[in-house]
Nucleic acid binder design. Structure first.
Lengths: 195, 195
DNA sequence: CGTTGCATGTAAGGTGTTACATGATTAC
DNA sequence: GTAATCATGTAACACCTTACATGCAACG
């Protein structure tokens, strides 16, 4: 008969609450920006609409509160803050809930895996594009890291973004090694043809 | 008025079709095993029930066909194979569809990001556990790679699994460096306390 | 005067998981 | 006998995205 526990939330909800846990009152829009600049690099950035609904859910279970506020330009907005109960629940989740294993969905490798259906040239282009994307992400993460480094209360976020920059660097090296392997495979193919 | 294109499939469907694209007729159960041994390391392994429904969808659009068959032990089963049309569509998708950027959801880093809500000891334990998990995955991927290396028609899958083993190794190194950073942060904390 | 940014939501629908249900064979 | 593996599905539901809808302010 077990009814679903209203405090059993998906990781995304904890991530959103985690953004509020740094103490500032934020609008849904601002939560999204934090997600985009920081969270995205090791977790992921939910759609705007999901952020709004997660915030509502968090408020319903008492982990967040909202109040009407005004922007600098005088327009109305709604800001959310974490509650004591929310902080306790989040700490409990962070410390005791089983850590979900990392999930990876790597589009470029899915293409490489199906290399036999494509051409070495096309595949190479796709991996090169992936490499360029990674480099871009690396630059963005590094910019975010520099911002975080300016504030002592962001020591842990800074560590995770630093982790992300290393992750992107590793990703880039992995792309290079894949490119080398691909070249070798194509070479073998040519040799066989001419034989 | 645009009705949804019945051939516009999610990446998961292409992944399942991709498993069939290596030429063998497989049961849903076997598709799952391939996903678990290979695909999982760079993409992910869908739930059993989803595999069955993806196979049905693929058959409906004509990219796969199924027929009743018998196992060695005489029990009935249903095997799926790729069609010519399916092969063409898959090649088209692999070569021309925009490559989805890699998606990462890293549970352990989500915990590290919220380090201020936990203790250095607990966080360290969690990262160590992640490190051990990674090592396990590395061993499994390496075993799969060795199997793939025995068959020349699996050259591309072998490359991607090799990529995965390197990925896990990088992941492990990243965990080590995070552990070192964490230790340093804790050290700084202690120094401040005693000051 | 058009675009970008700020700001908030709803509705619809697709994606994917968990739980449930079933049943035979093989190995301990 | 009972657990694991093979084998196939359905139903319910949670998660999440896309598209739509709105409106003001600031900048060029």
């Amino acid at each position: 008969m077990e009814r679903p526990d209203p405090t059993k939330l998906p990781a995304t909800a904890w991530a959103v609450l985690g953004i509020l846990a740094f103490g500032e009152e934020l609008t849904g829009y601002e939560v999204r920006q934090w997600a985009d600049h920081v969270l995205r690099h090791f977790y992921w950035s939910p759609a705007m609409s999901q952020i709004y609904s997660e915030l509502k859910r968090l408020e319903k279970v008492g982990y967040a509160v909202s109040r009407a506020a005004v922007s600098d330009d005088g327009r109305g907005k709604r800001v959310y803050g974490i509650t004591a109960s929310g902080e306790a629940a989040l700490a409990e989740w962070a410390g005791r809930a089983p850590v979900e294993p990392p999930v990876l969905k790597h589009g470029p490798m899915l293409r490489a895996w199906l290399g036999h259906l494509s051409t070495p040239e096309r595949l190479r282009e796709q991996i090169l594009e992936h490499r360029a994307d990674t480099e871009r992400e690396l630059a963005e993460a590094d910019a975010s890291r520099e911002v975080a480094a300016r504030f002592p209360e962001w020591a842990y976020p800074e560590l995770t973004i630093r982790w992300a920059t290393r992750y992107y660097a590793a990703q880039r090296d992995l792309a290079d090694r894949m490119l080398a392997d691909l070249a070798e495979l194509a070479e073998d193919g040519r040799r066989e043809e001419s034989a």
